[in-house]
């Protein structure tokens, strides 16, 4: 069965590492989205029963409090995480042999043929 998992020894390590990177990236995105949008909505959005006035700006270095908390701080934190992840955690992998020439040859020889779909 093609969908069954092969023995671990055969599994491509680049695939496994890529999967790890993808999981990290999507989790990171989900947390950032939830925190930023959630905290902005709670602290910086006009909505019924939550009217904000100029007194609610509460500036930090001239920046509205909600923006400082919900955008600036997360942006700096995410940047640090991105740099640490890419610089220290993400693995270097061998991407393998480039088969461009073989594909080129197959096209020329007409052996690059598949079923229509």
């Amino acid at each position: 069965m093609p969908q069954s998992n092969p023995p671990p020894d055969d599994v491509d390590p680049v695939y496994l590492n890529s999967l790890k990177d993808a999981r990290f990236g999507m989790t990171f995105w989900a947390i950032a989205t939830t925190f930023v949008c959630g905290s902005a909505w709670l602290t910086g959005y006009q909505r019924s029963g939550h009217t904000l006035t100029t007194d609610d700006i509460r500036p930090i270095l001239g920046i509205p409090y909600w923006f400082f908390l919900s955008v600036l701080v997360p942006w700096v934190a995410c940047s640090v995480i991105c740099v640490v992840y890419a610089g220290l955690i993400m693995s270097d992998d061998d991407l393998g042999t480039d088969h461009t020439e073989e594909l080129e040859q197959e096209i020329r020889e007409g052996t690059d043929v598949h079923e229509l779909a």
Binding site: Y15, S18, V36, W75, S79, M90
Partner: peptide
């Protein structure tokens, strides 16, 4: 615009290597 804070990891990191 602030989702650019995660763009490097999503756009380059999620699919890049694979």
């Amino acid at each position: 615009i602030c989702s650019y804070m995660v763009v490097p990891v999503t756009v380059l990191g999620v699919l890049g290597k694979r």
